[in-house]
C-alpha cells in the first residue's frame, strides 16, 4: 500500500513523536509518563514509518537493531543499580543529585531516571522487534 499522505505524515511525525517521547520520559518520575510510555511512543514512531514505507526501508533507515536496543536498555537498567553500591547503599537504592542548585534552572536527576531510560530502550526495542516480525511479508 503506497499512500502519499501517510508517507508525508509519517516522515514528519517521526521526529515529533521521538521528541514527545523524550519529554514524556523525562517528566515520568513525578508526573504521568515514564519509560514505558515513552518507549511505546518511540516504537510507535517507527511503526508508523514502517506502515507507510514498509519494513525493509525502515530497517535500512535506522542505524540500530531492535534486539540490540532491547539489550542496551536492559544493560542501562542494570547499571542504574550500581551507583548505590558505590555509595555504600543496597543495590538499586535511588540516588539523587541536584544540579544548578538555587538558580532558575534547578535540575534534579537521579538513578531512577537512568533506570527509566533503560526501560525506554527495552520497551521500544521489544515493540519494534515484535511489530516488524509481524509486518514482514
Amino acid at each position: 500500500m503506497e499512500s502519499i499522505i501517510l508517507q508525508i505524515a509519517a516522515r514528519h511525525m517521526r521526529p515529533l513523536l521521538i521528541g514527545l517521547s523524550l519529554i514524556v520520559l523525562y517528566r515520568g518520575h513525578n508526573e504521568p509518563g515514564g519509560g514505558f510510555i515513552g518507549g511505546l511512543m518511540f516504537g510507535a514512531a517507527y511503526i508508523l514509518y514502517a506502515m507507510a514505507f514498509g519494513v525493509v526501508k525502515t530497517q535500512k533507515s535506522i542505524f540500530f537493531n531492535p534486539i540490540n536496543l532491547t539489550a542496551l536498555g536492559l544493560l542501562i537498567a542494570l547499571i542504574s543499580g550500581l551507583p548505590a553500591i558505590m555509595l555504600g547503599d543496597i543495590f538499586m537504592t535511588g540516588e539523587w543529585y541536584t544540579f544548578f542548585q538555587g538558580t532558575m534552572m534547578e535540575l534534579k536527576l537521579g538513578t531512577p531516571l537512568i533506570f527509566d531510560v533503560g526501560v525506554y530502550f527495552a520497551v521500544a526495542g521489544m515493540l519494534m522487534l515484535v511489530m516488524f516480525s509481524i509486518m514482514e511479508e
Partner: peptide, 20 residues
C-alpha cells in the same frame, strides 16, 4: 496494574506473533 499491563503487552505481542 501498570506492571500487569506491561507483562500483558509482552505476552499478547508474543501470542500474536505465534498465532500469525
Amino acid at each position: 496494574i501498570l506492571t500487569a499491563i506491561v507483562i500483558g503487552l509482552g505476552v499478547t505481542a508474543f501470542a500474536l506473533t505465534l498465532v500469525y
